[in-house]
Amino acid sequence: MTTYPSFLDNFTTTLMGTKPKESNLHHWAILDAFTDVQDAEQRLRSALTAASQAGSAAAEKLDECLELLLDRLAAGADLSMLLSTACCSVAGAPVDKPCALSGLEQDEPCCQEPEEPAACLLDACSNAFAELGNPHAVASADLVDILQHLPGVAGNHWRYSDLTQARLAQLLAPHGMRTRDITLPDGRRRKSYSRETLLTAMGVCTSC
């Protein structure tokens, strides 16, 4: 997860007496996707180095490398999609042209300030967690796989069937939900959403 502004950035804004600029969620999603690509490449390089030194256990290490390579390709695809998707607002002003990859016909108006995801999306995520036995975290890819089978619109004009990991990240970001590298119950370490964060976004007390 990209963290900005930092303490120094906030201090500079206060010192200069300027008003903080409102950030664009699409830009945040690009930064997070780029970070995911870098992290995936780093894990892949480390695994390849370990595989070259594994000796008799090389076959097992190569399976891990293949899985990490698939992760890297998926992260790259998400980043490519975000970079090629039109950003609907510049400095808070709507752009008068249709959004790319929105799932709408070209003559339908759609460019506007990003809307907050409907509460039903959080409910759908909660149901997906329940379907998997309410684990402490669910991989972003696994969550998208489940949500894609739902009818209707997830938010921001995207149908559930058209969701990708990057699009889901954009929809959940206003609710404070971002992916983290989490070791899942099956031993995989993936970009995942935690159940605690989801419950907090839904207004459920997690400390009771």
Results as ranks from 00 to 15, higher is better:
residue 162 D to R: 03
residue 183 T to R: 14
residue 42 Q to N: 07
residue 196 E to R: 15
residue 133 G to Q: 02
residue 6 S to P: 00
residue 103 G to Y: 07
residue 137 A to L: 05
residue 90 V to K: 13
residue 180 R to W: 12
residue 167 R to S: 10
residue 190 R to F: 05
residue 169 A to K: 03
residue 150 L to Y: 10
residue 180 R to M: 08
residue 144 V to A: 06
residue 129 F to S: 03
residue 164 T to C: 03
residue 173 A to E: 09
residue 99 C to H: 06
residue 15 L to G: 08
residue 15 L to M: 12
residue 167 R to C: 02
residue 123 D to E: 13
residue 189 R to Q: 13
residue 202 M to T: 00
residue 162 D to H: 11
residue 159 R to H: 13
residue 143 L to H: 06
residue 100 A to V: 03
residue 64 E to F: 01
residue 129 F to Q: 01
residue 180 R to K: 12
residue 153 V to I: 14
residue 5 P to A: 11
residue 156 N to W: 15
residue 11 F to N: 03
residue 88 C to M: 13
residue 92 G to W: 06
residue 31 L to R: 09
residue 139 A to P: 12
residue 200 T to S: 08
residue 197 T to C: 10
residue 7 F to T: 00
residue 80 S to H: 06
residue 117 P to H: 08
residue 106 Q to S: 05
residue 161 S to H: 04
residue 163 L to D: 01
residue 23 S to C: 07
residue 205 C to G: 02
residue 176 G to A: 06
residue 99 C to Y: 00
residue 22 E to V: 05
residue 160 Y to A: 03
residue 20 P to T: 05
residue 18 T to H: 04
residue 13 T to F: 00
residue 33 A to H: 04
residue 117 P to V: 10
residue 67 E to H: 11
residue 70 L to E: 07
residue 138 V to P: 05
residue 82 L to K: 01
residue 186 D to C: 07
residue 39 D to C: 01
residue 64 E to I: 14
residue 123 D to F: 09
residue 59 A to P: 03
residue 32 D to S: 01
residue 51 A to N: 02
residue 84 S to L: 11
residue 92 G to V: 04
residue 144 V to T: 05
residue 36 D to K: 14
residue 78 D to V: 04
residue 120 C to F: 08
residue 20 P to K: 11
residue 18 T to W: 01
residue 101 L to P: 00
residue 92 G to N: 05
residue 60 E to M: 14
residue 104 L to T: 03
residue 48 L to K: 10
residue 39 D to F: 07
residue 56 S to T: 15
residue 120 C to Y: 13
residue 130 A to K: 15
residue 16 M to E: 13
residue 110 C to D: 13
residue 77 A to D: 15
residue 171 L to N: 00
residue 193 Y to I: 08
residue 113 E to M: 04
residue 67 E to A: 15
residue 61 K to P: 02
residue 131 E to I: 10
residue 207 S to N: 09
residue 167 R to G: 02
residue 146 I to T: 12
residue 98 P to Q: 07
residue 104 L to V: 01
residue 169 A to N: 04
residue 40 A to S: 15
residue 26 H to T: 02
residue 9 D to P: 00
residue 16 M to W: 12
residue 171 L to E: 00
residue 161 S to I: 05
residue 61 K to C: 13
residue 179 T to N: 06
residue 135 P to V: 04
residue 129 F to N: 02
residue 185 P to D: 08
residue 20 P to V: 04
residue 69 L to S: 11
residue 184 L to M: 09
residue 96 D to G: 00
residue 3 T to R: 11
residue 24 N to P: 02
residue 30 I to L: 09
residue 95 V to I: 13
residue 203 G to F: 14
residue 9 D to N: 11
residue 21 K to G: 00
residue 47 A to H: 04
residue 10 N to W: 09
residue 30 I to M: 09
residue 48 L to I: 08
residue 208 C to V: 11
residue 93 A to H: 12
residue 47 A to N: 00
residue 12 T to I: 03
residue 205 C to Y: 14
residue 1 M to Y: 05
residue 23 S to E: 07
residue 140 S to R: 06
residue 23 S to M: 04
residue 111 C to W: 12
residue 66 L to T: 04
residue 136 H to D: 09
residue 193 Y to M: 05
residue 33 A to R: 09
residue 76 G to A: 01
